[in-house]
Simulated scan of single mutants.
Amino acid sequence: MKRLPARGVRLLVLVGLLAATAACGLPRPGPNKPEIFDGSTLRDGDAFIVEVNDRVNRATAVVPASGFPASFLNAAPIGSDTIRAGDTLGLTVFENVDDGLLAPRESNAATLNEVQVDSSGYIFIPYAGRIQAAGSTPEGLREKITEKLDAQTPDPQVMVTRLAGDGATVSVAGGVGKQGVFPIERPNRTLSGMLASAGGIVIPPEIAQITVIRGKTRGQIWFEDLYADPSLDIALRNGDRILVEEDTRDFTALGATGNQRNVRFITQSMSAVEALAQVGGLSSALADPTGIFVLRNEPQDIARQVLARNDLVGEQRVAYVLNLTEPAGLFLARDFAIRDGDTVYVTEAPYVRWIKLLSVITGTAGAARNVSATVEN
């Protein structure tokens, strides 16, 4: 059997390995820029490819709706002395006789501690009967009791004190120093006061969100906005539920970046530049600065503004393209707002594919020489 020359063996091995490489494809983190463009609605795909400019930035700079409804903002603070169902009262009755109706022997004063206002708003006082207390102030209730007892004992003097009770309470949960149910009293009739009563927040303030639930209505604000805008320090109502949570928004970074991972927001708003900085920026050895994509399912209204079309229905897949090599590229990236659920994908530079191919060829040539040496031996 005739043996092939060493050069022929090397050539056959090289061709075979190149064919295998071409068939399997070179390793890479994802699609390149031309392949993403092939997914455009103008070609074979179902996504809109949009180059970012100032108009696009204005149309997409949508801040998630937050704030309190008008019913929360317009509610006046609850009077701290108003008696409510469930409150506990302290009553003292002074009688102007030696042998009074309520006072014990050798005393002219009777003390009734912890008189509970029932669910209907009434209390019971011996010899005065059942008296409506809810809705009255301690002074108003004093006059009612005095009037009832005046017919039983001469010139009674009554003192009424509203003790800390559970008539008007608020529950506070989440990232606070002390979770629990707190009575609405003079120092904590507003949201900020109640948070202070609960020990303050224990999560980073820049990503803390406060939700207030009142019946079937709710509102949510940023903790920092509570102190920036006094109108958000709303008056609380009985039964309010306050929840303090850390911001759960995130985005995903993929491709030729310093780090590929899921990333949580660390500020109320985040630009494309800030998002890239959070994952270590662009890989200087791999990234294509002309091919930075932000992939998003855009709501109908915003998609119509971005694409200047009124015929779009429902959410639209949009791939926004940022080119940092343009004169205003960095400014546009700085102004482009990242939103919850976005995917930030950085493509590889075209030359990286050739370097990988050359690396394969170099390795192939070395393998061919080794094979040739083996055959010759």
Rank of each mutant, 00 (worst) to 15 (best):
W222F: 09
W222A: 05
F223C: 05
F223L: 06
F223M: 11
D225I: 04
D225M: 08
D225P: 01
D225A: 12
D225G: 03
L226W: 04
L226F: 03
L226Y: 00
Y227M: 09
Y227D: 04
A228I: 08
A228D: 14
A228L: 14
D229Y: 15
D229T: 09
D229I: 09
P230W: 10
S231C: 13
S231N: 14
S231P: 10
S231T: 15
L232E: 03
D233Y: 03
D233C: 01
D233L: 03
D233F: 03
I234E: 04
I234K: 02
A235V: 04
A235N: 02
A235R: 01
L236P: 02
L236W: 05
L236R: 02
L236I: 06
L236G: 00
R237G: 11
R237M: 11
R237K: 13
N238V: 07
N238P: 10
G239D: 08
G239V: 10
D240N: 06
D240T: 05
D240E: 08
D240P: 00
D240F: 00
D240I: 01
R241E: 13
R241F: 08
R241S: 10
I242V: 12
I242G: 09
I242C: 13
L243Q: 11
L243A: 10
L243I: 14
L243K: 10
L243H: 11
V244A: 01
E245W: 06
E245V: 09
E245H: 05
E246M: 13
D247F: 12
T248N: 13
R249S: 09
R249M: 11
R249N: 07
R249E: 06
D250C: 11
F251E: 04
F251D: 06
T252N: 10
A253S: 05
A253F: 02
L254K: 06
L254P: 07
L254A: 09
A256V: 00
A256W: 00
A256G: 02
T257S: 11
G258W: 06
G258L: 11
G258M: 10
N259Y: 14
R261C: 05
R261D: 06
N262I: 04
N262R: 15
V263N: 13
V263C: 13
V263W: 14
R264E: 13
R264N: 14
F265T: 02
F265L: 04
F265I: 04
F265Q: 01
I266W: 12
I266H: 10
I266R: 14
I266C: 10
T267D: 15
T267R: 15
Q268R: 15
M270N: 04
M270I: 08
S271E: 02
S271L: 01
A272D: 07
V273W: 05
E274I: 07
E274R: 07
E274A: 14
A275C: 06
L276R: 00
L276Y: 01
L276T: 00
A277C: 08
A277G: 08
A277S: 11
A277F: 06
A277V: 04
Q278H: 07
Q278A: 13
V279L: 04
V279P: 01
V279C: 02
V279R: 00
G280L: 08
G280S: 10
G281C: 08
G281N: 09
G281T: 05
L282E: 03
L282G: 00
L282T: 00
S283K: 05
S283G: 08
S283D: 09
S284D: 12
S284R: 15
A285E: 15
A285P: 03
L286G: 02
L286F: 07
